[in-house]
């Protein structure tokens, strides 16, 4: 009916600002979006236009970059450029999957803990404390080593390391939102607790988790690569960035073998960070109150 009825639902109390804090912020956000979309397009369309197959031996061993092999070839005569692009198919889905699982588990447990309190809160939060007491990389390594190498086990290890961060974040948000008057109002109209949690508490608690998820995506990309680098993630022939760096690390003068996947990790991690930063500026509740 009114023009204003199309206002987006993802707003807090105030209308959004149309620009970011500084022109530099704009540049980083646009760069983040560009690089992320680049990798997404690569991920989807790769098999139609990739110059070689990632596991095929082509040309000679350890050839320097040239027009035939943009990033040279590795010790087993495979095209590094092709393998680097294919690496996105391993790392990106795993990273996104880890974050989605961690956010889901963290949101469910954290909101139950924050909303109901009592023994649920004690159990969940002690679990969170125990997990967060370890440095994430060591814990992920320990879990991955215990489960045995493989990208799938690395995935589980990372979810185990990451969910408590969201559980704690969401719990804090839920506790803050819980005491707002509109929650009391929902009680007073006779809404069930389940409805109050779903309709009145969670929608207002979720924004920080969303921002954090985008920022964390970059870190998970690095952690995935780290685990693979240490031999706890993807197994050797598969083109995973961390594993490729392990291969390349042996050849000091044939730098391209390790640098190409390194650049891939760098660009992906940075662009996710830029995106998360921009998202925080656009959505942050605290900055606008």
């Amino acid at each position: 009916m009114s023009l204003l009825s199309t206002a987006p639902r993802l707003l807090v109390d105030v209308a959004p600002r149309s620009t970011w804090k500084s022109p530099w912020k704009r540049v980083t956000v646009i760069a983040g979006m560009t690089v992320t979309s680049f990798w997404l397009v690569v991920l989807i369309t790769l098999s139609w236009w990739a110059p070689y197959k990632p596991l095929d031996a082509v040309g000679g061993r350890l050839q320097a970059p040239s027009w035939h092999h943009l990033f040279g070839t590795d010790a087993l005569s495979r095209d590094v450029f092709t393998r680097t692009l294919y690496g996105a198919r391993q790392t990106l889905p795993v990273s996104v999957g880890v974050i989605v699982c961690a956010v889901t588990i963290g949101t469910v447990l954290g909101s139950l803990a924050g909303f109901f309190g009592g023994w649920i809160e004690s159990v969940v939060m002690r679990l969170v404390d125990v997990t967060l007491a370890f440095p994430p990389i060591f814990l992920a390594m320990a879990v991955a080593a215990a489960l045995g190498p493989g990208l799938q086990n690395a995935f589980f290890a990372m979810v185990i390391v990451w969910w408590p961060i969201y559980a704690r974040l969401i719990r804090g948000q839920v506790q803050a939102v819980k005491h707002r008057d509109h929650i009391q109002a929902a009680v007073s109209i006779g809404a069930t607790r389940w409805r109050i949690l779903r309709k009145h508490v969670l929608p207002l608690s979720f924004t920080p988790a969303l921002i954090n998820a985008t920022l964390d995506l970059g870190q998970v990309v690095i952690l995935t690569a780290t685990l693979s680098f240490l031999g706890l993630g993807a197994k050797p022939p598969s083109p995973e960035w961390g594993a490729m760096i392990t291969d390349g690390a042996q050849f000091f003068y044939q730098w391209w073998v390790a640098v190409a996947p390194g650049i891939a990790i760098l660009t992906v991690a940075m662009s996710f960070n830029f995106l998360g930063d921009g998202l925080r500026d656009a959505l942050d509740v605290r900055a606008k109150r």
Partner: peptide
């Protein structure tokens, strides 16, 4: 009392 916090902004 507070019409700002008593309505769900979403």
């Amino acid at each position: 009392q507070d019409p700002y916090t008593s309505l769900n902004p979403r």
